[in-house]
Nucleic acid binder design. Structure first.
Lengths: 110, 110
DNA sequence: CCACTATATGATTATCCACTCATACATCCT
DNA sequence: AGGATGTATGAGTGGATAATCATATAGTGG
């Protein structure tokens, strides 16, 4: 019940490529499982497990309509987090390519 | 090399209670391993592994000074991400306690 | 009731993670 | 050089995670 564990659980729910794709898919609103799993090219069962995992960690919510179950993002913060992480990836990518370039002219520097 | 993998790696580097503690410790500036591992009550070797992991994922940087190696946060976005996750934990905690309260007066609702 | 569709879950497997202990490596001091 | 300190890493272990296949559950329509 310690806060750092809960916080880590939320981040863990986002720290997986397939789950990130699901989050990006849900960025424009709710979708049901039968829409999600073809869109991310995964098996239905695997998709369902990832959705359950995110639901339990509190970042998704569920809405049932007939046979279908629609999932959606519960907190706008999730998208902000993903966006910040993408910003960091961009910075890192630029930094690394700059390092490679620098190494070509100034070998053995760190 | 796909972007969603890199993004997931960054989030994975934050999605662990001990690493979150390290990040919070580094929020006020650089610290060396010998300061960090007693502060988070972990073995030196385990602490070092977590630091290496975060270094490789790109969220930390290293500075050597004599025997000591000082680690620091490379991107301010990391703190923003942790802060957003904490905000979500607060919202979830409030929601859940509200649900419990509601259940006591209106049992069997969802 | 039966067939059909949508979703969840048990069981299994392979892989990854966190941790520990011991040890190596690097740097400093005398 | 030798001892002390700070950090990293190899090897081993137990436990978590992700994926798959098969099956169960639940709602829908004939």
């Amino acid at each position: 019940m310690e806060p750092s564990y809960l916080c880590a659980d939320i981040l863990k729910a986002l720290a997986q490529p397939i789950r990130l794709k699901i989050v990006e898919l849900l960025a424009d609103g709710e979708h049901c499982v039968c829409e999600i799993f073809p869109a991310i090219a995964q098996e239905q069962s695997n998709t369902s497990r990832h959705l359950q995992m995110m639901l339990k960690s509190g970042i998704l919510s569920q809405r049932k309509e007939g046979l279908k179950i629609y999932y959606s993002l519960r907190h706008p913060e999730v998208l902000e987090i993903v966006h910040l992480a993408e910003t960091m990836v961009d910075h890192e990518t630029m930094r690394r390519s700059a390092l490679v370039k620098a190494k070509r002219s100034l070998p053995l520097s760190r």
